[in-house]
Simulated assay, not measured.
Amino acid sequence: MKNRVCFLLLIIFTFTMSEAYSQRLSREKINDTLEKMPVFSIHKDNYFVTGISTSEEISSETADAKYQISFKALLTRNTLPFDTHLFLTYTQKAFWNIYKFSSPFQEINFKPGIALGKPIYNRKNHLAGMAYLQVEHESNGRDSIYSRSWNRISLGYHTALSKKILLSVKAWIPFKYKKDNPDLLEYVGYGKLNLTYNFIPNKLLLDLMLLKGTKDWNGTVRTRLMYKPFNSSNIYLMMEWFKGNSESLLNYEENRSMIRAGFVLKSDELNFLKSLPDVL
């Protein structure tokens, strides 16, 4: 209950802070952007990274590779009530024991979903942020004692707090998860927070993700430093440090510390929030 109250207060704070800025994109510009948006596009970041554990001896057992594929398909634009748009999402994250004999896959997590998006405008009718109501299913496609799955209804909000800082908060209500993993919420909690700081716009950025479980010190801290070497592409070099639980579904209770490096094809889903804000 305490975690849910904290995330509710955080969402209220986020909406309040976003009112302190006036995005230069008007309602008309956002509607025009939605009309021209491609049907298929990147949803979350698509990446491939490989690395080692920082808490265990380095070996083929503790080193691995991780990659993610994520996209969305727009079903409607702003034809639904309240200027909302409907889209499907799909994200697949794989853990690959690439350094072991025969290079087996340790686990693949599948996450399909459907979401309703809505631009949020301030008193000047300029964009303040984007809100999403989403239903997701996540599973590892395994059976028997290795089966892991859960479902959630979530509410997310993305906004710019300043010229260089983007904030994303997401809170969820889980359902149908107790059969496979009854203690899952002790490790994933009821929501997460993302902060992205642009040291050099569209060139060098730092992303921080925080997630708190409902029990003790369970949770996750994930930091990503990304650098784009070529201005003509959307590919970044990435260094990632992951510390905490629930990196994968199969061993969600395991506390891991991994440092990995690789490349990422960044999502441009929230690029319009990077427009320079004017203080009201």
Rank of each mutant, 00 (worst) to 15 (best):
L86W: 01
F87G: 04
Y90S: 06
L86N: 00
H126N: 15
S102E: 15
V135Y: 07
K100N: 10
S144C: 02
A131M: 15
A128F: 07
R123S: 13
F105T: 14
V135C: 08
N151E: 11
R142L: 12
I98T: 12
K124E: 04
L80P: 00
I98D: 10
A128P: 00
F87S: 03
A128Q: 12
E136C: 04
K124G: 09
S147W: 01
L86R: 00
Y99P: 01
G113T: 10
L86P: 14
M130G: 01
P112Q: 04
I120P: 00
K118G: 05
G141P: 03
I120H: 05
F101H: 15
F105P: 05
E138H: 03
K100G: 03
R148E: 14
N140T: 06
R123Q: 13
M130W: 14
I108F: 07
Y99I: 11
D143V: 05
P119A: 15
L155R: 00
P104G: 01
S147Q: 05
D143T: 13
N140L: 04
I98P: 08
I145R: 07
K124A: 08
N140Y: 08
F82Y: 14
P81A: 13
N109I: 04
S144K: 09
A131F: 08
L133G: 11
L88K: 01
A115K: 01
Y99W: 15
L133Y: 12
V135R: 03
K124C: 03
D83Q: 07
S144M: 06
F95C: 01
Q106P: 00
S144Q: 09
N151C: 10
K100F: 12
T91M: 05
N125G: 11
L80I: 04
W96L: 06
L86H: 01
H85N: 06
D143K: 09
Y132A: 05
Y146E: 14
Q134F: 02
H126S: 08
S144I: 02
I108Y: 07
K111H: 05
S147F: 01
S102Y: 07
N97M: 09
F110S: 09
L133D: 00
Y121E: 10
N109L: 02
L80M: 12
R152P: 01
A128N: 14
E138V: 11
G156Q: 15
A128D: 08
P104R: 09
Y132F: 12
E107W: 02
I120S: 07
I153Y: 12
G129C: 09
I114P: 04
N140W: 05
S139L: 05
S103G: 06
V135A: 14
L133H: 02
G117K: 05
Q106C: 03
Y90P: 03
R148V: 06
A131V: 04
D143A: 07
E138K: 12
I145H: 04
Y146A: 13
L116V: 13
R123W: 12
